[in-house]
């Protein structure tokens, strides 16, 4: 896993664990890595915005941006698992499986986690 990907994950973790709007400075302060440059974090966060993993809006003073996750962590885990557990068409061809198994409740929970977060209204 490359370091930039690693940084993406750590930034998302900070935002997922807070659950509120954060500025780049807030995120940077919550990361243990003191050597990280402000601009690096900002670049990665804006990339996450472009990929639709983060939403951003202007702060009240209108001078800086603040960010929050577009969906919860569970929604992405659910999407990942659903396509891994799927037994249909392209999805099964896309991944090489050893075997799959899931209980009925787990399957139900996965399906519920998915559309709710997908259709959640964006502020």
């Amino acid at each position: 896993m490359n370091s930039l990907g690693d940084l993406e994950r750590r930034i998302m973790d900070v935002l997922w664990s807070t659950g509120s709007w954060l500025t780049v400075r807030d995120v940077l302060n919550q990361m243990s890595d003191r050597d990280l440059a402000y601009t690096t974090v900002m670049t990665v966060m804006n990339r996450l915005v472009r990929k639709d993993f983060l939403l951003r809006e202007r702060t009240e003073d209108g001078r800086t941006w603040r960010y929050r996750p577009a969906a919860g962590r569970e929604a992405y885990v659910a999407e990942l698992m659903l396509s891994a557990l799927s037994e249909t068409g392209d999805r099964i061809a896309a991944l090489g499986h050893f075997a799959r198994s899931v209980t009925a409740e787990e399957a139900e929970a996965l399906r519920e986690a998915l559309p709710q977060d997908r259709t959640r209204e964006r502020p």
């Binding site: 990929k51 993993f53 992405y76 885990v77 392209d90 896309a94």
Partner: peptide, 16 residues
Amino acid sequence: ALAGLRRRQRTLLRLV
């Protein structure tokens, strides 16, 4: 289609 599904898998894996 397959490349798209795999790319999405990689992206999500990188995050979670």
